[in-house]
């Protein structure tokens, strides 16, 4: 019996879909059997980020309305050997096509076959969000270190805490720009975590590589050398119950240079 984790944020554009794709990939790299479920009906794009767009035959609405069996709608990620699947959202209807009870039934069925079901929630707190949360056992809230995103995350956490059957949510602070945080132009990670007062499960730096990999439909978590990839892999390990310390935000090259400058008594600008 697997567990279902909803990935949500309230605000749009903070990286729910990217996080879902990469955590799914990272968990599969840990030899876990994972199913990604896109609940953003009408505005699906997890399939694009995963590079699986062309292989979609049936979608979530087809399954719920009984036009096909679940396994027919699941799209297999060929980069893995039978570990990672995607249940795509429908593109033609809207969020009202599915009800929370139907979603719960669907997720419960998926839990029989998979270790982890990652449910990518749409932005907002309406029908789509309610569908996404319906079947979840756990929740991850993604936010960026911006006031607006944190405010919405706070709202969503409040709603999640009221949800029965969902464990207290955990937090990912995404798109961190270290230099801005240092200058005080962005909230820093501690501030965000204290404010929201839920367990921090990971921090992910802002990196052009993430956008590039989404563009190519190849989640960055596949790349063993990228810092961001390691951040996602660390989160996956924390989901599995390992205790992994948080990443240092400083760029290693930068850190080295700064150390060198310090060594020679020069002031870093």
């Amino acid at each position: 019996m697997g567990e279902a984790i909803v990935i949500t944020s309230g605000k749009g554009g903070v990286g729910k879909t990217t996080t879902s794709a990469n955590l799914g990939t990272a968990l599969a790299l840990q030899e876990k059997k994972v199913c990604l479920v896109d609940t953003d009906i009408g505005l699906r794009n997890l399939d694009v980020v995963m590079g699986l767009e062309n292989r979609i035959i049936y979608d979530l609405v087809d399954v719920v309305e009984g036009r096909c069996k679940i396994h027919q709608a699941l799209v297999k990620d060929k980069r893995f050997n039978d570990l990672l699947y995607l249940l795509p959202a429908a593109q033609t209807t809207d969020k009202s096509a599915v009800h929370p009870e139907q979603m719960k039934k669907l997720v419960d069925e998926l839990k029989q076959d998979f270790d982890y079901i990652l449910i990518d929630s749409p932005a907002g707190i309406e029908q789509g969000y309610k569908n996404a949360v319906a079947g979840a056992d756990k929740a991850i809230v993604v936010t960026t270190p911006e006031r607006s995103a944190v405010r919405d995350a706070d709202r969503v956490i409040g709603l999640l805490e009221k949800e029965e059957g969902v464990e207290p949510p955990k937090l990912i602070v995404n798109r961190i720009r270290n230099h801005m945080m240092k200058e005080g132009d962005m909230l820093d990670v501690d501030e965000v975590a204290t404010h929201l007062s839920i367990e921090l499960i990971g921090i992910v730096a802002d990196d052009d590589e993430v956008i590039k990999s989404s563009h190519q439909g190849h989640p960055i978590a596949h790349n063993p050398n990228s810092k961001v990839s390691i951040a996602y892999r660390n989160i996956a390990r924390r989901i599995l119950g390992e205790s992994v310390p948080l990443q240092h935000l400083e760029d290693p090259k930068d850190g080295f240079l700064t150390k060198l400058k310090k060594f020679f008594g020069a002031r870093s600008s």
Binding site: R151, D152, D154, G158, L159
Partner: peptide, 25 residues
């Protein structure tokens, strides 16, 4: 507990809140 954004806590008499009120709460 914590009163988060969007939450409203209302009582007819005196209120003793042992916790924070977040922005938007």
């Amino acid at each position: 507990g914590r009163i988060r954004s969007g939450q409203v806590l209302e009582v007819p008499g005196d209120l003793l809140l042992i916790g924070d009120v977040n922005p938007g709460g």
